[in-house]
């Protein structure tokens, strides 16, 4: 087996705030093979976005930030190389799609220019060739009349079209890994599905590894090979997507899936809830971080932090729980992951 495309080992991202150290990412390890897709799911404050940005090298060691552990991307140590080396990775090896397409686009630059600039810079294409490739890219991301659209300004496009342009920009230099950070949160529901379908088909067609970061379980359901559920800076559970949605082994994953209303459930039925709220990341509790909200927690959970281990399940499936669940989830939610 060849070395994986992405290898993250015991990654910690800590922000020094006036009120103390905030461990946004607190010991995350994961790996991703070429062409594989991974969903990272968690609520706000779980560290999922920070993790994405640290992998990308957007967050590095600095006066207020401390990154320890390693991120190896196509054999390059992202946090060990000089800034110039990191910039070389961006675009050609790894690219990112952000939540709000409008902030990713320069409002005074035409759509085409966003694409041709990087094509000429990174790939040394001529003006004409870059233009041709830009139109081709726009066609590839499903923009109708790409030649005309290339001449328009970002504000002339709808939100969904803008996000397609951003995706085209990310694809311009054929990255091996695409990190999409909440790519559809700012979009309408009917457009969300189209963008997710697009990302999925592009990943398959271009054999591009994808990390899909989202707060919305539905976004990753059925679209990624694996899912990592994050809670309070740590991975609670990581397994095949169907396994996580069908037989979640961490009580947090289970509760999260159960708390989403289903279209199948009867009107006026009460939803399952997770009581309380996530821990304060400036002073996280000892032991399992979910213990305070966990309906199965015992004394051991509050003192001893569970390691992320296979614990008897199939290969590639790990859970950080002393007492992993085994029963499949209540039927009504199973079709979500199907």
């Amino acid at each position: 087996m060849t070395a994986p495309l992405l290898e993250v080992d015991d990654l910690h991202t800590t922000f020094r705030t006036p009120r103390g150290a905030m461990r946004a990412v607190d010991g995350v390890s994961l790996s991703l093979a070429a062409g594989e897709t991974l969903g990272i799911v968690g609520e706000s404050g779980s560290g999922k976005s920070v993790l994405g940005r640290t992998i990308m090298g957007l967050i590095t060691n600095g006066p207020t930030t401390e990154v320890t552990g390693s991120v190896r991307l196509a054999g390059v140590d992202v946090h060990g190389v000089k800034p110039a080396g990191r910039r070389e990775l961006w675009g050609t090896t790894v690219a990112m799609v952000f939540q709000d397409p409008m902030t990713s686009l320069n409002p005074v630059k035409r759509v085409g220019l966003h694409l041709t600039e990087s094509l000429r810079l990174h790939k040394g294409l001529s003006k004409g060739a870059a233009r041709e490739r830009a139109v081709e890219l726009l066609r590839q991301v499903g923009i109708p009349e790409p030649a005309r659209r290339a001449g328009q300004y970002p504000h002339e496009l709808s939100g969904g079209m803008r996000q397609r342009v951003v995706i085209a920009m990310a694809l311009a230099c054929d990255p091996q890994l695409l990190i999409a950070d909440e790519p559809t949160t700012a979009l309408d529901v009917t457009v969300q599905k189209q963008i997710l379908d697009l990302l999925q088909s592009l990943a398959e067609r271009l054999h591009m590894a994808t990390i899909l970061v989202s707060h919305d379980l539905g976004t990753v359901a059925g679209r990624t090979d694996r899912v990592a559920v994050m809670y309070a800076g740590r991975v609670a559970e990581s397994a095949g997507t169907d396994a996580v949605f069908g037989t979640p082994r961490h009580p947090y994953s289970q509760a999260l899936i159960e708390s989403i209303p289903s279209i199948e459930s009867r009107p006026h039925s009460l939803l399952a809830t997770i009581e309380g709220s996530p821990p304060n990341m400036l002073a996280p509790p000892a032991g399992c971080r979910f213990a305070a909200r966990c309906r199965y927690a015992v004394d051991r959970c509050r003192v001893e932090a569970p390691a992320l281990e296979p614990r008897g399940a199939a290969a590639g499936s790990v859970v950080a729980c002393h007492f992993p669940l085994t029963a499949p989830l209540h039927h009504q939610h199973q079709e979500v992951g199907a």
Partner: peptide, 15 residues
């Protein structure tokens, strides 16, 4: 609101 808080608020409105 966050997913886990959404359910709490929906239940509160319902009751």
């Amino acid at each position: 609101l966050d997913v886990s808080v959404q359910a709490q608020i929906l239940n509160l409105l319902e009751t």
